[in-house]
Computed example of a mutant assay.
Amino acid sequence: MTKISVNLPGLTMKNPLMPASGTFGFGDVPAAKKFDLNELGALVIKTTTPEARIGNPQPQIAVLDEGVLNSVGLTNPGVDEVITAKLPPIKKQYPELPLMASVGGESKAGYIEVARKLADSGKVNALEINFSCPNVAEGGMTFGVQPALIEELTAAIKAVVDVPIYIKLTPNVTSVTEIAKAAEAGGADGLSMINTVTGMRINIETRKPRLGNNIGGYSGAGVKPIALYQINQVRQVTDLPIIGMGGIESAQDVVEFMLAGANAVAVGSAHFKDALICPHIAQDLPAILEKLGVTDINDLVGQVEFN
């Protein structure tokens, strides 16, 4: 029997698939209600900040032929509301489903506060630290491009939480390996990569950008080669588990990401095409692995053979 289960720090997953942060809200968006979420390997919730955020000006999302531009801006009700109102319904309905919370903030103190509160809630199995959002004026990307800050913040968060932490890396840097090594030096338990690539589209009739925030994060199939390259680069400098993302739309894509060096994957933009993309990919995985002569999906990790 082909094994597709994956074990990562804090996350015991029946398959390597999870919706990327923001894709399923807090398990309360329409797509999350179309199937039994126990079919997922894990669920990553929307990024949570110290206080409520209303996000960026509309339109916040532009669905393109080749991907998706978004500038949502971390809209969320704030960490206290997330813990008291958003997490309990998910835990009640899906008590066995591994939950990863995504942590955001505008300052070092903000990140530490959110991480500590979420970890102390006892409702999440791991934290994804979003040092890489291109759609907020402060925090996020500001931290995500500076190795010294990444190491300092990672260590500070690690000191106050008792669940594993995964640092989400931005692709919008000169050397993603330096950022990855800084996260590892700070005590990270794993990495998530890549976050969206900063981009823009323009309406030629109005001459205005397609997004209310003018620029946004580009995701979807168009970023897949960038994601694969950066994941492979990072795999060569660290043994930390990597949750790979960036244009995954099929079981074949999952295999490709794992060959590049990912241990598990997160699916985002593909949900605009198929709300059931994660269970569909999970169903397809055993057959493609059998065709490739692979009995354990974990044996694929980092096994790309260079020319």
Rank of each mutant, 00 (worst) to 15 (best):
N38I: 07
F306A: 10
N125H: 08
E66F: 15
Q93Y: 11
P9K: 00
Q252C: 01
A20Y: 05
R207K: 15
T238C: 10
K123F: 04
E249K: 14
A101E: 03
I129W: 09
I167C: 08
K117V: 10
D80V: 13
A227K: 02
A183V: 02
Y218D: 03
T198Q: 13
L40G: 06
D274G: 12
V29M: 13
R210E: 14
H280Y: 06
K291Q: 15
L40D: 06
E151H: 14
D36G: 11
T23Y: 05
Y94K: 01
S175K: 06
I231M: 11
G217D: 00
G199M: 08
G186Y: 12
A266I: 04
K86M: 14
E113S: 12
I4A: 09
I129K: 04
S21D: 04
V304C: 08
V6W: 02
G217Y: 02
F306E: 09
D284E: 15
A31I: 12
F131W: 03
L69V: 11
E184C: 03
D274P: 13
G302F: 02
E152T: 04
A188Q: 05
G122Q: 13
A287K: 15
G186Q: 10
P95F: 13
I167V: 12
S219Q: 13
V237H: 02
Y111C: 06
G247M: 08
N195L: 08
E96N: 12
I167L: 07
N307G: 04
A227E: 02
S269K: 02
V114G: 10
M18I: 05
L153D: 10
E39Q: 15
V68P: 07
L127P: 08
A32R: 12
L118M: 11
D299E: 14
K168F: 02
V72T: 03
Q146D: 14
V72N: 01
N7Q: 05
I281Y: 08
V254N: 10
L240M: 01
